[in-house]
Computed example of a mutant assay.
Amino acid sequence: MTTRRAIAVPSSIVLALALAGCSNGMKKTFGLEANPPDAYQVGTLPPLSLPPELGQLPAPNPGQPPTQEVSAAQQGSSVIAPANALPGNGQPASAAGQAFLNQAGPAPQGDIRAQVNQNAAVSSKSGNFVDKLMGDNPAAPPVVNADEEQRRLQENAAMGQPVTKGATPQESSASPGLWGRFLNWF
């Protein structure tokens, strides 16, 4: 009986450790699983600098972050800011950059964002009884017919013409209301 107990206790401990080692928490605890740093929180520290006179150092604020340190979020947003992506007013674009911009097509209108927001607001507006009776709002923006537009672009490419040649095929989502259908009978 004692030999069974002598075998059962160590084997149960080994079994418990083996099962605990299979869990993610134990793998991290024992260093069996990689724990990489968060890519969005990694940043470089600013270089050390000394003032001309050491007596002019500001008093330290315990517990406060360094005054010269920029957070990783601010560094990331400054890297992907549109002002940094395209050359500024005084900087001419490189030859490759200018070729890319020429290939992208004409510059959008200045108020394009306002137009897109207005069109989205108009198209998402649910109609009331009068709108259903009279028909959809006539100011609803037309929608590009994707199949016809693809066919037009393929024809232009086959003929060696620019993509801007020809009118963009559009389909109106407006449907005649009850009153419009009634008048169409006559």
Rank of each mutant, 00 (worst) to 15 (best):
P36L: 07
A39D: 04
Y40I: 01
Y40E: 13
Q41K: 12
V42L: 09
V42K: 05
G43D: 05
T44L: 13
L45G: 06
L48P: 01
L50T: 13
L50D: 10
L50P: 04
P51G: 10
P51V: 06
Q56D: 14
L57I: 12
P58W: 07
A59M: 07
N61Q: 15
G63F: 00
Q64I: 02
E69N: 12
V70D: 03
S71N: 13
A72I: 03
A73Q: 15
Q75R: 15
S77K: 12
S77P: 00
A83G: 11
N84C: 00
N84G: 03
A85C: 01
A85T: 12
N89V: 07
N89Y: 02
G90E: 14
Q91D: 09
P92N: 08
A93T: 06
S94N: 01
G97P: 04
A99R: 08
F100A: 13
Q103E: 05
G105T: 01
G105H: 01
A107H: 08
Q109V: 13
Q109K: 11
D111Q: 03
I112N: 11
R113Q: 14
A114K: 10
A114N: 10
V116G: 03
N117G: 00
Q118G: 01
A121I: 00
V122I: 14
V122D: 10
V122S: 06
G127A: 11
G127C: 04
F129D: 14
V130W: 11
D131M: 06
K132R: 15
L133W: 06
G135D: 00
G135H: 01
G135Y: 01
D136M: 04
D136T: 05
N137E: 04
A140S: 14
P142W: 03
P142N: 10
V143S: 08
V144N: 06
N145I: 00
A146R: 13
A146T: 11
E149D: 12
Q150R: 14
Q150L: 12
R151M: 09
L153A: 14
A157G: 01
A157I: 08
A157Y: 01
M159E: 13
P162N: 08
T164F: 07
